[in-house]
Design a protein around this nucleic acid. Structure first.
Length: 798
DNA sequence: TGCTTACCACTTTTT
DNA sequence: GTGGTAAGCA
C-alpha cells in the first residue's frame, strides 16, 4: 500500500505550494510526473517549458507515491547552478508537501501514514552534477587501505601533463607529433606553439575517455598516432599512480567500478535516477547512467532538448539524446519502449519571442535532420497572453562601430532602469513603451555573447569593455563580468599579488634564481611588484584594527620580524597572507567582481597546496625557506601570471541587482531575464574569414575534425558522422543562438554592426538570421527615425 | 568590371 | 602565419 496515491500527492502539492494552487500542470507535464517508474521516461522539453519543475515533482512523486527513500534517489544536472536550483525546489516543495500530507493524515487518524511521513527526510535526495556525485560515490566506496584519489582541475592537469609527459622522449618538439596534430587542428594558430600543443593533447586525453576511444586500435594508424596515444596513456598512468584524477578519469573510474560490480553501497540503495540536460551527455556519462540502472534496476527519467545541445567541446553527443530509445534498449538488453513526453508550452517568453525563436530553429531546412524526429515547436502559454503583457517586437540595434553601439545600448539601459522609460516607434506607426518593473534594476537585463572577453588579442576593446566604461562613467553603474578580464591585469589583483611577492621574496632575489621561468612571466611578476610598491607608497588607509601601515607590514615580512610576537612563525600559510593583505583592498569585499577575484586567488592557493611540497606555506628558520618561496611562486604566482587560472563566478550565490550582468551564452543556459540583449556580431566589421567559424563557417572547426579523427575507434563515431563536419559547425552556431534567443521573458534585443545589415554583400551571420541557402529569415525594418548612427532603434520583425 | 595589393584578425564555450 | 576581403585603381 503506497503512502499516497498519485491523486492524493497532487492534492497535497496543490494545497502546500502556492503556485500550483490555481494552476496545476499542463497535461504533458502531468503525464511526465504521473508516469509510473517503469518504463523509463523520456522528456523532450523546449526552452521555458518547466522542465526543472517537472523534474523536481517527479523526484517528490518517487518519494511520496512510489515510497522510495529520499537517499535512494539521484538527480543529476549539468551545471552546479542548475543543481542548486533543482535542489532548492525539491526541498521547498517537498517539505511543504510533507507537512500538508502529515496534517491530513493526522486529521484522519491514520497513524501508520503519520509515522511513515515523519520518517521522510527530503534533504537526503542526492542532487548535483555527475562529477560532484561521482566524487562522493568514490569516496564512500573506499576499501581498507585504498586511497581516495584527489580530483584536479584544468590548469593543474595541464601543468602535470607538461612537466611529466610532454617533455619525455622529446615529444615537445617532435615534428611527427606536430604534423599529426596539425591534421585535425587546422585553425589558427594550429599547433605551432608548445602551449597550444599542450592544450590540444590535453583535450584529446578527455576526448579519448569521453568517446570511449580504443587507443590500441588508434595507435596502429601511424607514427603520429602512436606518439599521441603514448602521451595520453602516460598522462593517465601518471595521474593514476599519483592518486589523482581529472574529471574524465573520475567518470571512467565510476564506470570501471560499476562494470566490475563495485559501488554496491550506491547501487543497492539506488531506486531512481533522473538526468537533466541529457542532450549534453557524452558517451562515457551515458554508459555510467545505463550501468547505474542496470546494476540497480533503478527507475530512469531523462530530460533534455536537442536544440539546446551546446557542449560539443566536452564530448556532448546530441545523438545520444535523439536516439535514446534505441540506445537504451541496446545497452540494457531489454525490450523497453520509453514513455515519451513532449513539453511544448512555454511559460517564459512573450508570444513574439516564442514565435521568433521557433522560426530561428525551424526555418533552416538543412538543420532539421539534426533534430529529434518530429520535433514540436513551442507554444506561448495562454497564461502569458491573458496577463495583459505588451507583445513587444524583437528589437535590434545596429551601428557602424562598437563605440556608438555601446553608447546607445547604455543610453537605452539608462532610460529604462534609471530614467522614466523609453518609447519605441515601429515602422507601421505603432508605439511601445518600455519601462522597468516596479522594483526593477539593471539585474533584470543581461548581455549575452559567445565570448565576453573585454579586449581583443591586440588590446583593442570589445563591446563589454566599452559598455563597462560608459555605464560607470556616465551612469555610475557597475558591470558584472568577472570572466571578461584576465586575472593578471586587474589593477587591484596586481597590487595585491605584488605586495604578497614583496613580502615573501623582497627584491625578487629568489624569483630570479628560479630556473627556466619564462621572461614574459618574470615581466608580469615584476609589474605586479611595481604596482604593489606604488600602492604601498600611496599609504592607503589601513583597515586592520591593530595594523601598522602597509609599508611597515611589508618590511616586517621582508625581515621576517614580528613585533607582536616573540618569534616569526616557522610556517606561514600563503592563504593567511592573502587574507591579511586583502584588508587593504575594500574592492575584494565590496564589489561582486572583487569577491570573485578574491575567491579565485584563494582557490588557486588551496589547490596548489594539494600538490606543492610545502603545502603553499612560507617556511622560516629552516633550510627549506627559499624552496618554499620558490614553490609558492611556481605553483601559485606563475600560473596566474600566465593566464592559466580562470575565475569561477559560481561562488556568487546571487549577483547584486544593481549591477549589469554580462555573460556567455553557455553560462546563461537555464536562466531567464526580463530583458536580454544578444550580441549577434559586434565583432563582425567585415566578412573576415577568420571570424567565419563563429558566424558562418565554410569548414568544420577543430572540434569537428577531432570527432572525425577518432570516429572509427569510438562507439559514437558513426552516429556523429551522419552529418559532415561543416553541417555540425553550422548546427552548433544555430543551437548556441537558439539558447540565447530563448532566454528573455519580455524583450529580446539583438545588437551588432551595420555591416551585417547593409544592402550590398552584408556580412553573413547565422545569429543575425542568415540561412545556409536562400538569404535571411528576418527582415530588419528600420524605425521611422532610424539612421545608422542615430540613437533610435531598428526593429527586427519576423 | 577586373586586377592588384594592403591589411586584417583569429587562438570560445566548462564539470 | 595565413589567406581572404575590401579598397583602390584602371
Amino acid at each position: 500500500m503506497p503512502p499516497l496515491t498519485y491523486d492524493e500527492f497532487r492534492e497535497c502539492v496543490q494545497s502546500a505550494v502556492q503556485r500550483f494552487a490555481q494552476n496545476w500542470l499542463n497535461p504533458q507535464q502531468n503525464d511526465a510526473i504521473s508516469a509510473p517508474p517503469q518504463p523509463p521516461v523520456f522528456i523532450v522539453a523546449g526552452p521555458g517549458t518547466g522542465k526543472t519543475t517537472v523534474l523536481a515533482l517527479r523526484v517528490l512523486r518517487h518519494i511520496f507515491v512510489d515510497d522510495y527513500p529520499p537517499n535512494s534517489i539521484i538527480a543529476t544536472t549539468f551545471t552546479k547552478k542548475a543543481a542548486s536550483e533543482l535542489r532548492s525546489r525539491i526541498l521547498s516543495w517537498g517539505v511543504a508537501t510533507q507537512q500538508q500530507a502529515l496534517t491530513q493524515a493526522q486529521a484522519n487518524g491514520d497513524q501508520q501514514t503519520v509515522q511513515w511521513l515523519q520518517n521522510v527526510d527530503i534533504n537526503q535526495v542526492q542532487t548535483g552534477t555527475l562529477d560532484a556525485l561521482a566524487e562522493e560515490i568514490i569516496a564512500n566506496d573506499r576499501q581498507p587501505g585504498e586511497i581516495t584519489p584527489t580530483v584536479i582541475e584544468g590548469f593543474m592537469a595541464r601543468g602535470l601533463l607538461r612537466k611529466n609527459v610532454m617533455f619525455q622522449h622529446g615529444r615537445h618538439n617532435s615534428p611527427v607529433l606536430q604534423e599529426h596534430l596539425g591534421t585535425f587542428n587546422r585553425q589558427f594558430p594550429g599547433v605551432r606553439s608548445f602551449s597550444r600543443k599542450l592544450k590540444v593533447c590535453h583535450s584529446f586525453a578527455d576526448r579519448v575517455l569521453h568517446d570511449g576511444v580504443d587507443l590500441n586500435a588508434y595507435l596502429t594508424q601511424g607514427q603520429g598516432h602512436q606518439i599521441l596515444a603514448d602521451i595520453i596513456n602516460d598522462y593517465h598512468n601518471y595521474l593514476i599512480t599519483h592518486q589523482l584524477m581529472d574529471f574524465a578519469l573520475l567518470e571512467q573510474e565510476i564506470l570501471d567500478r560499476l562494470q566490475s560490480g563495485r559501488l554496491q553501497t550506491t547501487t543497492q540503495q539506488l531506486q531512481a535516477l533522473l538526468v537533466d540536460e541529457f542532450q549534453d551527455t557524452n558517451y562515457l556519462q551515458e554508459q555510467v547512467y545505463y550501468r547505474l540502472c542496470q546494476n540497480s534496476n533503478a527507475a530512469l527519467t531523462v530530460v533534455g532538448d536537442d536544440d539546446q545541445s551546446i557542449y560539443r567541446f566536452r564530448g556532448a553527443t546530441v545523438e545520444i539524446f535523439a536516439n535514446f530509445a534505441n540506445r537504451l534498449q541496446a545497452a540494457l538488453g531489454v525490450n523497453w519502449t520509453p514513455y515519451a513526453v513532449n513539453l511544448v508550452e512555454n511559460y517564459r517568453s512573450s508570444e513574439r519571442i516564442v514565435e521568433f525563436f521557433n522560426h530561428f530553429i525551424s526555418s533552416e531546412s538543412t538543420f532539421q535532420p539534426a533534430r529529434v524526429p518530429n520535433k514540436q515547436a513551442c507554444i506561448a502559454s495562454a497564461n502569458w497572453a491573458t496577463a495583459q503583457n505588451q507583445n513587444i517586437p524583437i528589437l535590434g540595434m545596429f551601428r557602424t562601430n562598437i563605440q556608438n553601439l555601446a553608447d546607445d545600448i547604455c543610453t537605452f539601459l539608462h532610460d529604462i532602469f534609471q530614467g522614466s522609460g523609453r518609447t519605441i516607434a515601429v515602422a507601421d506607426g505603432t508605439q511601445f513603451f518600455i519601462q522597468r518593473n516596479p522594483n526593477g534594476d539593471f539585474g533584470d537585463a543581461v548581455l549575452l555573447a559567445g565570448k565576453v572577453q573585454e579586449t581583443k588579442p591586440d588590446g583593442q576593446p570589445r563591446l563589454p569593455s566599452l559598455i563597462r566604461q560608459r555605464l560607470m562613467d556616465d551612469y555610475g553603474v557597475d558591470v558584472f563580468n568577472p570572466r571578461g578580464r584576465d586575472l593578471a591585469i586587474i589593477p587591484e589583483v596586481m597590487q595585491c599579488l605584488g605586495i604578497m611577492l614583496e613580502c615573501i621574496d623582497p627584491n625578487a632575489t629568489i624569483q630570479n634564481s628560479i630556473p627556466r621561468i619564462r621572461q614574459t612571466t618574470i615581466n608580469t611578476l615584476n609589474a605586479w611588484r611595481n604596482a604593489g610598491i606604488q600602492f604601498a607608497q600611496s599609504n592607503p588607509h589601513p583597515n586592520l584594527p591593530n595594523a601598522n601601515s602597509i609599508q611597515q607590514f611589508i618590511n616586517n615580512w621582508a625581515n621576517r620580524n614580528a613585533p607582536n610576537m616573540n618569534n616569526w612563525p616557522s610556517e606561514w600559510p600563503l592563504l593567511e597572507l592573502l587574507f591579511t593583505v586583502v584588508a587593504w583592498f575594500p574592492i575584494f569585499q565590496i564589489s561582486p567582481e572583487g569577491q570573485v577575484y578574491l575567491e579565485t586567488l584563494a582557490r588557486t592557493i588551496a589547490e596548489a597546496s594539494q600538490v606543492s611540497n610545502y603545502r603553499s606555506a612560507i617556511l622560516s628558520g629552516t633550510t627549506y625557506d627559499d624552496n618554499s618561496v620558490k614553490d609558492a611562486i611556481r605553483e601559485v604566482f606563475e600560473p596566474i601570471a600566465e593566464g592559466e587560472v580562470e575565475v569561477d563566478e559560481e561562488i556568487m550565490p546571487y549577483v547584486p541587482r544593481a549591477v549589469f550582468p554580462i555573460m556567455t551564452i553557455h553560462q546563461a543556459k537555464g536562466l531567464e531575464f526580463p530583458l536580454v540583449i544578444v550580441d549577434v556580431g559586434s565583432d563582425f566589421r567585415t566578412n573576415h574569414h577568420t571570424q567565419r567559424p563563429f558566424r558562418y563557417p565554410n569548414t568544420g572547426a577543430d572540434v569537428h575534425l577531432t570527432e572525425d579523427e577518432v570516429a572509427n575507434f569510438s562507439p559514437v563515431g558513426q552516429a556523429r558522422q551522419q552529418r559532415p563536419p561543416l553541417d555540425r559547425a553550422f548546427d552548433d552556431i544555430r543551437r548556441l543562438f537558439f539558447v540565447a534567443k530563448s532566454r528573455p521573458q519580455r524583450i529580446l534585443f539583438l545588437v551588432g554592426l551595420t555591416s551585417q545589415l547593409r544592402q550590398s554583400s552584408p556580412v553573413p551571420s547565422i545569429a543575425t538570421g542568415d540561412l545556409r541557402v536562400g538569404g535571411r529569415i528576418y527582415q530588419f525594418i528600420p524605425a521611422p527615425n532610424w539612421t545608422p548612427n542615430s540613437p533610435a532603434n531598428t526593429i527586427a520583425l519576423i
